[in-house]
Amino acid sequence: MGPVAADGAKETLETVDGILHLRWQPGAHIQIEDAHLAMAKVNDACGNERRGMLVDMAAVGSVSREARSVWSIPCSASRIALLGKSPVDRVLANFFLGVHIPPCPTKFFTSRSEAMKWLTAGV
């Protein structure tokens, strides 16, 4: 499956080797409706199966509190690896992990290969 990006969407979603890849556009300011839209796409892509998901959040502009809280709702993802590279990404990721309770094992990575290893280990 190739990247899925609806008109005006702030993210793309694709499945590679059974792992979902959610990539937020650089500089995107993620609001609650963006989060809902992305989650619907994730659930849709998974069907009845639960899959690991890599979220590429490097260069995300901001994530609103309400948008973060959407990801506390259980979805079809069985594990979520948050991938960033800058100190800003780390702060954003940890606010999500610290303030909200993720519905499945969720971890922040700065290395894509480490993230993929962790996701694959959980399959």
């Binding site: 500089g27 260069a59 901001s62 609103s64 509190r65 800058s86 100190p87 800003v88 990404d89 780390r90 702060v91 954003l92 606010f95 303030v99």
Partner: peptide, 25 residues
């Protein structure tokens, strides 16, 4: 407003923004 550098200072700025948001909430 953080810059596009996304360095430590931007991380502190983002952290302060997020803390303010939490406090407001």
């Amino acid at each position: 407003e953080p810059s596009d550098l996304r360095d430590d200072i931007d991380a502190v700025i983002t952290g302060v923004n997020l803390l303010a948001e939490e406090l407001s909430y």
